[in-house]
């Protein structure tokens, strides 16, 4: 009886030892696989880069290009990243060849599937590729729903993907876009339009005339980004806007384009601004080295620390007469 129990215990023990050994072996194998994947992603990048340069030099068709381990997720993501970075900086034949390669290797389909499956943070990251790579119509249909996402980054990059597909329709698209655009979002749109060589003058006019806050703010950013001289008078008109976001946007652009005739509209806007906004505007003017008569207008706002204003003036090389110190009775 005792022997039977002992042999049973021994069997259980040996069985447990075998299971533990198997788990440890599997763990070691997994660790080795992870390490080799990391190492291969680093060496893959160098290999892919060399292959891409060679491909761009030659006229050979896509089927002759060899990218090792392209079937693995690391391989696909490494190549997608390299193509999107390079395509963003190039124009003409090289760009077209890179985009052709992206599609012919099936990377677009894979990217689109990943976008649909990912969580919001990852989705925004993946959608970013479409700011560099022009999506196909099928892809666009799949990502249209993300324009209504609750995540602002996902919404922005979905919008940029749509604009990248048809940048000539920026004004129409923006007029239908119901969400607020951040300053960085406006700059991204301007960068996209510049990268795609879209004529912006007409688009800017339509945006400014639309009266919609989003559109007007983007129009203002376009004036600054593309230095559209003929719309400069519009900036002064918008400084008088009742909407504080438009007013602040107009003032920001006014300084960026170094508008010299700062007149009554700007001084009226100063009165309407909060202390913080006024300080920020003042700093912008100092950095842009506006003249002392303009800067000294700020002196009347007692709450905005006239001493700081004076010091800023001194630092920026302006000289203003000190007010005589009143004689104090001893």
């Amino acid at each position: 009886m005792t022997d039977a129990i002992l042999s049973l215990l021994l069997n259980i023990l040996s069985g447990a030892l075998v299971v533990i050994a198997l788990i440890l072996a599997a763990g070691f194998r997994l660790r080795r696989a992870v390490l080799s994947l990391k190492a291969s992603s680093l060496s893959l990048e160098a290999q892919y880069r060399a292959e891409l340069y060679r491909f761009l030099d030659s006229e050979e068709p896509v089927r002759k290009v060899r990218f090792p381990l392209l079937g693995s997720p690391i391989g696909a993501s490494t190549l997608t990243l390299l193509i999107s970075k390079l395509a963003a900086q190039l124009y003409g034949r090289e760009r077209e060849r890179l985009l052709g390669l992206f599609r012919d290797l099936g990377l677009e389909k894979r990217l689109c599937n990943d976008i649909c499956r990912a969580d919001d943070a990852e989705r925004a990251n993946l959608l970013r590729f479409y700011t560099e790579i022009v999506p196909t119509f099928d892809t666009l249909k799949q990502i249209t729903g993300f324009l209504r996402s609750e995540n602002p980054d996902v919404r922005l990059y979905a919008l940029l993907a749509h604009l990248n597909y048809c940048p000539e329709k920026t004004a129409d698209m923006l007029m239908r876009y119901p969400h607020e655009l951040t300053l960085s979002g406006q700059k991204e749109i301007c960068r996209l339009l510049a990268a795609r060589f879209v004529p912006v003058s007409d688009c800017c006019r339509r945006l400014l005339e639309s009266g919609r806050k989003n559109c007007v703010l983007l129009g203002l950013s376009m004036i600054a980004y593309f230095d559209l001289q003929k719309y400069r008078p519009v900036i002064l008109e918008l400084v008088d806007s009742l909407d504080p976001a438009i007013r602040d946007g107009a003032l920001r652009v006014l300084v960026i384009v170094r508008f010299s005739q700062i007149d009554g509209a700007v001084y009226r806007a100063l009165d309407q601004m909060g202390e913080h906004d006024r300080k920020m505007f003042y700093r912008m003017l100092v950095r842009a080295q506006y003249s002392t008569p303009i800067l000294s207008r700020f002196a009347k706002y007692e709450g905005d620390s006239p001493l700081a204003a004076y010091l800023n003036l001194m630092i920026s090389g302006h000289t203003i007469p000190l007010r005589p110190i009143a004689a104090t009775a001893h």
Binding site: Q89, Y91, G92
Partner: peptide, 8 residues
């Protein structure tokens, strides 16, 4: 100006 036309 970027984007760059490499042949140019």
């Amino acid at each position: 100006t970027l984007p760059l036309n490499l042949p140019r």
